[in-house]
Amino acid sequence: MFTKPLRGIIPPVITPMIDNDTLDVIGLENLLNRMIKGGVSGVFILGTSGEAQNISYNVRKELIKETCRIVEKRIPVLVGITDTSFSESLLLAANAALYGADALVAAPPYYFAPGQAELIQYYNDLANQLPLPLFLYNMPSHVKVMIEPETVLALSENPNIIGLKDSSANGVYFQKLIYLLRNKPEFTLLCGPEEMTAEVILMGGHGGVNGGANLFPELYVALYDAAASKDFEKLAELQSQVLRVSLSLYNIGKYASSYIKGVKTALNLLGVCSDYMAEPFHKFKDAERAVVKKKLIELGLDI
């Protein structure tokens, strides 16, 4: 088990796949070992970056098993259990506990957007039946509802709810969380958008769940360290590098999934893993792939 609060960079791991029903296990091993070698503080599987809602439950369960096997308790493993079905979330949680994961992560159920009172009841009901501690996951762009700061404060009273990952990219929201939870020093507050991670750490947040750490784990770990130690000169240099990665690789083509396509293509070009995208999405074609290669070279990589 990890120390609370959980600090550092916890990459939201992409899911390497060979086809819709086959996990790229060798690629997963390459990816996880690369991130661990880069100094990350944990890994988060079956999140947005992992295409969780697009892959079968069989593949999700295999991913949990293989990730825990490969990581081998070297760092904490966080497992996403977001689902519209309460029972399916519990089944994924049971698998996570069976194979040795350390914590769970759940965004609000999507499709019918729950109100805040419903969210409090839902998360308390869920947490009280889970075999592992739970992180809330604020992802309003995808689930149509914000977990309001007062809701987070209410849920923090549940001993099995230990933190929150915020992907809203709303700095005022994060400031409110830090203020409201100032008397709960063990409650972890993590930032999703990597462009904001340094700012969030300086505000008092605990770390970043940054997609770019799939590609450049050392960069994001160094960013966290510079922010945590308030080394502003180093931080300015690293923040510039992080923005170069983001602006270079995450907006190729006009797709909602451009970020995941860009990261997967880059990893494939680096020889790490397959770039297959789970249906209904598809990997970049040759023209877009050539753009990713050009951007990687501009970022200083020998492709």
Rank of each mutant, 00 (worst) to 15 (best):
G207N: 01
A154P: 06
Y220G: 00
P185M: 05
P140E: 15
V172G: 13
E237D: 15
N158M: 09
E199I: 09
G192A: 06
P133L: 05
R244I: 04
I147M: 08
L164P: 03
L180F: 14
S156E: 03
M139C: 15
H142L: 15
H142S: 14
P131V: 04
G211E: 00
L153Y: 14
V209S: 03
D166L: 08
Y220A: 00
G204L: 11
Y250V: 03
E148H: 13
S141M: 15
V221I: 15
G207I: 02
Y137I: 07
P149L: 09
Q129K: 13
A227Q: 03
L180S: 11
E157P: 02
V242F: 01
M196V: 07
M146L: 13
E237T: 10
A213C: 12
H206S: 08
L164T: 02
T188Y: 06
M146V: 14
N170W: 07
V242H: 03
A228N: 11
V152Q: 09
L190W: 03
F187V: 01
N138A: 11
A198M: 04
D125Q: 13
S156T: 04
A154K: 14
S167F: 09
I178Q: 11
L235N: 00
Q239C: 07
I178N: 08
S240H: 15
E150N: 14
K176H: 13
L181H: 07
Y220C: 00
P131M: 06
L130D: 04
P159T: 02
P133D: 05
L136S: 02
I162M: 01
A228P: 07
S229D: 11
N138I: 06
N158R: 06
K176A: 15
Q241K: 13
N210M: 10
D231V: 02
L243W: 09
A222R: 01
F187N: 02
L134H: 11
D231W: 01
L247C: 12
E186W: 11
L130W: 01
T188N: 05
A213E: 02
F174E: 11
G171R: 14
E199Y: 15
L177Y: 05
P185N: 09
A236C: 10
L238V: 05
E237V: 10
V221P: 01
D231L: 04
L219N: 02
V172D: 13
G171K: 15
Y179W: 12
H206Q: 10
L177R: 07
K165V: 01
I162G: 00
K234Q: 10
V242C: 02
V200G: 07
N138P: 10
L190G: 03
E186F: 13
Q241L: 12
A227P: 02
N183M: 06
L181P: 06
L202C: 06
P140L: 12
A127V: 03
L164W: 02
L223R: 09
M203I: 02
Q129I: 05
Y250Q: 13
G211H: 05
V209T: 06
D125C: 09
E150F: 14
P149C: 08
P149T: 06
E218W: 00
L134V: 07
V200N: 09
V145S: 13
E233P: 03
K184A: 09
R244P: 03
S167H: 11
E195K: 11
